[in-house]
């Protein structure tokens, strides 16, 4: 299995050979496989990929918060060099929220409907900073201000259903940032926000990174955001990494047909097609994880697919220094 060239010693996050398996009505099948991630302190890793490719599952495993049906069935996760999967539950609880925090994808369902925004943030502060009720609430309001919540003192007293979608998302972000986490996992944190606010929030997160050396794992659909904030990028398809590179390399020389599809450009001229043709979306749909094709999972949709692609799964290999891809017929950079 291919590994990153970078050393993983002392990294904030080091995931190796991770498999996440679902046990459900359809039997047991992996939704994430051969996953490896290394994020240094202060570094930003972006994970991109279509809906259902296992981004949220990967993110949840980094807090050991996988749903009951799912479990890390193989591999290892190290947080600050400690074996995270073998850690006692109480120690994990001590780390969550302060050492490693998460911004969840759905702010409406991720916030408790019967507690005020302020209470929910202050609860986290009280838990980790040992502050009294009043001081914790003051800290909550301060954090809400930080994420540009309008009228933060009043919002703190309101319930999630009383806020707009964008405000809820900011409350969710404030909740994650309240205790100055050293590692932040953000699952599409800015989707419901307009571009200006989104830029503000991303700016805020990168301030936090500079101030505290926070390691950031950012999941997003938005390649514009990736270009803006990422140091390294992992492109996922059907539960696996298909391409991984520094943000510069990825945008300069994308080599996997799926990445090219995501970027909206067709790969190098295939017979009979002009190189300038743009793809708005990649045709076809993602195969379900319980029914993956035998060879390359992308083959049914891939414009470059050959006979071999349908038979054998391509391994992730270093195609150029620091630039990995899993493809038999990749584009030459």
């Amino acid at each position: 299995m291919a590994q990153l060239a970078t050393s993983t010693v002392g990294a904030a996050i080091a995931v190796k050979d991770l498999e996440i398996r679902i046990r459900g009505d359809r039997g047991s099948y992996p939704v994430v496989a051969d996953m490896a991630l290394t994020v240094e302190r202060g570094e930003t890793l972006c994970i991109v990929g279509e809906s259902g490719c296992g981004k949220s599952m990967t993110a949840l495993s980094l807090l050991r918060l996988l749903p009951d049906a799912a479990s890390a069935s193989k591999g290892s996760i190290e947080i600050n060099g400690e074996d995270f999967l073998a850690m006692p539950e109480r120690r994990v609880e001590d780390l969550r929220g302060v050492e490693i925090a998460m911004i969840f994808q759905e702010p409406l369902t991720a916030l408790n409907p019967v507690l005020t925004i302020g209470e929910q943030i202050a609860e986290s502060v009280r838990r980790h900073k040992k502050l009294a009720h009043k001081a914790a609430m003051a800290r909550a309001i301060e954090t809400l201000q930080l994420v540009q919540m309008p009228d933060p003192a009043r919002r703190a007293k309101q319930f999630p259903h009383e806020l707009s979608g964008g405000q809820r998302q900011r409350a969710m972000i404030a909740l994650a940032l309240a205790c100055d986490p050293k590692i932040l996992v953000a699952d599409e944190p800015t989707t419901a926000l307009d571009v200006t606010v989104q830029a503000q929030i991303l700016g805020l997160i990168s301030d936090l990174q500079k101030r505290l050396g926070t390691a950031l794992v950012l999941i997003t659909h938005d390649l514009g955001v990736v270009a803006e904030v990422a140091d390294r990028v992992v492109v996922m398809y059907a539960g696996r990494r298909v391409e991984e590179a520094s943000v510069y390399d990825l945008f300069e020389h994308p080599i996997h047909p799926y990445t090219l599809g995501l970027m909206g450009a067709i790969p190098r001229p295939v017979a009979g097609r002009p190189a300038t043709e743009r793809l708005v979306d990649i045709a076809g749909t993602v195969p379900p994880p319980w029914d993956l094709p035998k060879g390359c999972a992308f083959a049914p949709r891939c414009p470059r697919a050959s006979a071999r692609c349908h038979e054998e799964r391509p391994p992730l290999e270093e195609k150029r220094p620091g630039h990995f891809a899993a493809c038999w017929e990749h584009v030459d950079a």
Partner: peptide, 25 residues
């Protein structure tokens, strides 16, 4: 529910999550 997961993500201990976040709802 998702908000129970959020409560765990804050680092809260299980009894507190069960009583304050889950039971209340």
């Amino acid at each position: 529910e998702d908000f129970v997961r959020t409560a765990y993500a804050k680092g809260l201990r299980r009894p507190r999550v069960v009583v304050r976040h889950a039971l209340r709802n």
